[in-house]
Design a protein around this nucleic acid. Structure first.
Lengths: 338, 338
DNA sequence: GGCCCGGTTTACAACGCTGTAACGACTTTC
DNA sequence: GAAAGTCGTTACAGCGTTGTAAACCGGGCC
């Protein structure tokens, strides 16, 4: 059987509480006693029982990260950063996959694991502010990605999607492209990110005096490669675009594949721009231009906001805007084309 | 404050234990009482305190999954399957990233979270059987990937790497290639997977009567895209290979990039074969031929083995070999080339 | 009517830990 | 030399839950 405080105490010839004090690094323990206790701890290879500690203290040292899907490289990369940031604070991360399913998302915010976790980092996909408004669980929560409703009383970390999408579109226009398509529009009421990126795209067109041709807007119900490949196919034809701004990198990689397999040259015939800066894009051929959202900083900010709440901060919900960066690569290069 | 059993009991006018019985679905609770208790539970939106339950029962319902890095698409995809498989059994998954660091790996198997988790699924990278042999923690553990040492007393799930590598190499030889390179060899004593795949490669060459040219074996200290790109560059030159078997898909995608950017045609000049069947490979141009290791089945088997141990199974360590499949795609197609 | 039996409900203790308060021994201060 | 403080250590209670064992209650049987 595993050793308990009691066993260590008996072995060291002190009281249980003294062992507890040593374990927790309390002051007012004499050097001699401390040494004896530490020896006993080592001999029995004692480890604190976290369940008991949690029960007593109400804290578990575990935070949950709920994302749609770790298959998605963006979330996988975000998760590594969150785990690192949490680790730096001595926390462990428990990962929930919601699959973007409203039911599962509701379970997560409803506190399905509430007694196990101290806080929740949640990247919602399907839930609207309505769902969050009625939240009964009181575990601190920080929202990642798009803000869900203007009034949701939760800390939020995200980027300025409108500005980023505008910059990405302008980047294509600056390279002389006139028929710039947008790929990844969505109709669902919860698709806030898609709406904002489309808005930025339209602002950029307007700023350049380019007409907003509705046939250049391609919808994609899900933002993965297959959807990008299909949506790109729908854009091609007699009036094919000369550039396409995809609302994320997965869509862009799918689009790239369709373009190349149909004999289009990238970037010469069609420039491609993504969003997210996932590792794969860097190694595509040609390498994928993209918007880099600073994932490490997003993760760090989110964990930091949560840390404040766990430390008892009660003020107004805070809004963190993490800066983004345009990262031009081979699919939209500077310079001349033949 | 959050409701406890006691609060529900008072509201329903019964004892604490009766509420506990209802919550746990015990028999011998009258329909009337059950209904009253359930109403009270709903009104107070009671949720069991998992810490207390764990303390009492010694079970947490949490299993840990320790992988080198979620950034790596192979592990990200594996993680999604593990999380799903665990979810089906009502378990939650806590993810640890070891970064392939021996120190962190040792912490994980040493039981750093032992009181928090019921079991451990561990995909070792750096640890050898020596490290595992002295394991003191008694949390059930199942090893994923390469077997660490022949005698480690742990259940293990993996694929037949030698056979898979042999099949992949033969596949290239069958398409008429004679100078087939291997990319991803490693010298570290812990690099069991690399050794086995190299062995399969050599067996295939021998079976075809092809000479084993040492200059065709490229080393890569880490199996990511950058390493693949660099190793591929080292293989090129006057005696460039006409096919390359990469020990995983990330290496292959890096190699692909080097080949294309240097003007080689794939598959005409050089065929490329990967290993792992990650999503990215499917969307590369050309799409990447690979070995599919059945990740869903690996995850399911591992969770199932762990479930048996948690249920008290004590027999000999079990060895599960999950079948693999050769998945030819554009980078090594059937048919003729100009 | 008393007794036993089965289903239903309950009191109690314990899981391992830590905050509180109090204790004893020793030092400092007037 | 007595009072006041300081330091190191301890006893105790309680966090919310569940297993155990015992109490309770009504119906069927002798």
């Amino acid at each position: 059987m595993r050793a308990r405080l009691k066993d260590v105490a008996e072995r060291a010839g002190v009281s249980i509480k003294t062992v507890s004090n040593v374990v927790n690094g309390h002051p007012h323990v004499s050097a001699v006693t401390r040494a004896r206790v530490e020896a006993a701890i080592a001999e029995l290879s004692y480890r604190p029982n976290l369940s008991a500690r949690n029960l007593r203290s109400g804290r578990s040292g575990v935070v949950a990260l709920a994302v749609p899907d770790l298959d998605n490289p963006y979330f996988a990369e975000l998760a590594t950063h969150v785990i690192s940031a949490a680790d730096r604070r001595g926390w462990t991360v428990l990962v929930d996959q919601t699959q973007g399913d409203p039911g599962k998302e509701r379970l997560v915010v409803g506190g399905i694991r509430s007694h196990l976790i101290d806080g929740l980092l949640f990247s919602p996909l399907a839930l609207t502010h309505r769902d969050l408004a009625g939240r009964e669980d009181h575990t601190p929560m920080v929202l990642l990605g798009e803000r869900v409703g203007r009034r949701a009383p939760y800390d939020h970390v995200g980027i300025d999607n409108v500005a980023a999408a505008r910059a990405a579109t302008l980047h294509l226009a600056e390279r002389g492209r006139r028929r710039i398509a947008a790929l990844g529009a969505q109709r669902a009421p919860s698709a806030a990110t898609a709406r904002l990126r489309l808005k930025g795209y339209r602002q950029a067109l307007a700023a350049c005096g380019l007409a907003a041709d509705p046939s250049l807007i391609a919808h994609a119900p899900a933002w993965h490669r297959t959807g990008g490949a299909e949506a790109m196919a729908a854009l091609l034809g007699p009036d094919a675009p000369d550039a396409v701004f995809c609302f994320n990198d997965a869509l862009a990689l799918g689009a790239l594949r369709t373009l190349l397999s149909r004999g289009y040259r990238v970037p010469e015939d069609v420039m491609v721009m993504g969003f997210d800066d996932i590792e794969d894009g860097r190694f595509a051929t040609p390498s994928l231009s993209t918007v880099s959202p600073g994932k490490a900083l997003i993760a760090e900010s989110a964990v930091s906001l949560l840390a404040d709440r766990l430390a008892g901060a009660t003020g107004e919900p805070r809004e963190v805007r993490v800066p983004h960066r345009l990262t031009p690569r081979g699919s939209s290069p500077y310079g001349e084309f033949p």
